[in-house]
Design a protein around this nucleic acid. Structure first.
Length: 117
DNA sequence: ACCTTGACGGTTC
DNA sequence: GGAACCGCCAAGG
């Protein structure tokens, strides 16, 4: 199908726990698409607003490898993303989140659970 | 088939 | 930190 990659990406994003964040490249890697961070950005831009497979896709938990929100600070989406993160106790200073404190570190059982060969 | 566009990333200065 | 540069590659025109 056309959107295999998007589906895989959305699914991985749904695994990010509340109160934590992941970066685009990290999601790409976990989705079996190493080196394709930009594709993750595209996929997130096409997330169905109503959710996917019965669940919402927490697009706002994905930020860039610099630990920053990737929207222009004045944009509508920037404000939305920051608000969502703060609502779940993630500290956002300006556009920055301390990855050291909030980056998702998936454990082995989570990874195994998500694999479907 | 060619060109441009991304919610990017690593390297380097 | 931050900016410039280059690599990446699916989608859409």
């Amino acid at each position: 199908m056309l959107n295999d990659h998007y589906h895989q990406i959305w699914q991985t994003v749904q695994l990010i726990p509340k109160g934590q964040v992941a970066c685009y490249g990290q999601i790409a890697d976990l989705s079996g698409l190493p080196g394709r961070a930009r594709l993750v950005g595209k996929a997130l831009g096409r997330v169905p607003k109503e959710g996917w497979q019965g669940q919402s896709v927490p697009w706002f938990r994905v930020i860039n490898s610099q630990g920053k929100i990737s929207f222009p600070p004045s944009s509508e989406y920037f404000v939305k993303q920051k608000q969502h993160l703060q609502d779940e106790q993630v500290v956002v200073l300006g556009s920055r989140v301390k990855l050291k404190d909030f980056q998702w570190q998936p454990d082995l059982s989570e990874l195994l659970f998500s694999l479907k060969f």
